[in-house]
Simulated scan of single mutants.
Amino acid sequence: MGRLGVWKEALQQHLTSQRYFKTLKLLTLSMGGLALVAAGSVFISGWLIDGVEAANGNQQTATDRSSLGDYFGGVSALFSGTALLMLVITLVYQQRELRLQRQELTLQRAELVASRNELRRSADSDLRGHHVQLTQLQLENPELMAVWNDYPGVPETQARQHLFANLTFSHYLLMLKWGSISDAEIIAHADRLLQSPTFRAYWDASSAAKEKLPRGTDEYHLFNLFNLAMTRTDRETGGASPRRHPD
Rank of each mutant, 00 (worst) to 15 (best):
H162L: 09
I187E: 12
A208E: 06
S206G: 10
Q195G: 03
N117P: 10
L173M: 15
M145A: 06
L139V: 01
W203D: 05
A201M: 04
L127N: 08
L176R: 15
A188S: 11
A205H: 02
N224D: 04
R120C: 00
F199Q: 01
L119C: 13
H189T: 06
Y202L: 04
H189M: 04
P152H: 14
L194I: 13
R200L: 14
A188C: 11
P152Q: 09
A146F: 00
R121Y: 05
V154W: 01
S125Q: 11
N117C: 13
A146L: 03
T135A: 02
Y172M: 14
A184Q: 15
I186W: 01
H162I: 09
Q161F: 05
G179Q: 14
T135I: 01
S125K: 10
V113E: 00
V154G: 00
Y172V: 12
G179V: 10
S180G: 10
Y220G: 05
P155G: 15
F223C: 10
N117D: 12
R192V: 14
D183N: 12
E118D: 07
E118R: 11
Y151P: 05
L137H: 03
P142G: 06
E140L: 12
E211M: 08
R200F: 15
D126C: 07
S207V: 08
I186L: 02
L173H: 14
T217W: 07
R192H: 15
S182I: 08
Y220A: 11
Q136I: 03
E219T: 07
L167T: 08
P152Y: 08
L134Y: 02
E143R: 11
D218E: 11
Q133I: 03
E156R: 13
P142M: 03
H131K: 13
T198G: 04
D191C: 07
S170Q: 13
P214K: 09
T168H: 10
A190M: 07
W203Y: 11
A190E: 01
S207T: 11
S122G: 06
M175F: 15
E185M: 06
D191P: 11
Q195A: 01
S180F: 12
P214T: 08
A209V: 13
V132A: 03
M175W: 15
L137Q: 02
L176Q: 15
Q133L: 03
T135H: 03
E118N: 08
K177T: 09
A159L: 00
L222E: 14
T198K: 09
N117G: 12
M145N: 00
G153Y: 01
S207M: 09
A184L: 15
A123N: 13
W203Q: 05
K177R: 12
P142S: 04
S207C: 05
L127W: 03
V147W: 02
T217I: 01
A188Y: 10
L144M: 06
F223Y: 14
V147D: 12
Y151T: 03
V147F: 06
D218A: 12
L127R: 07
T157R: 13
S125F: 11
L173I: 15
R160W: 07
G129N: 09
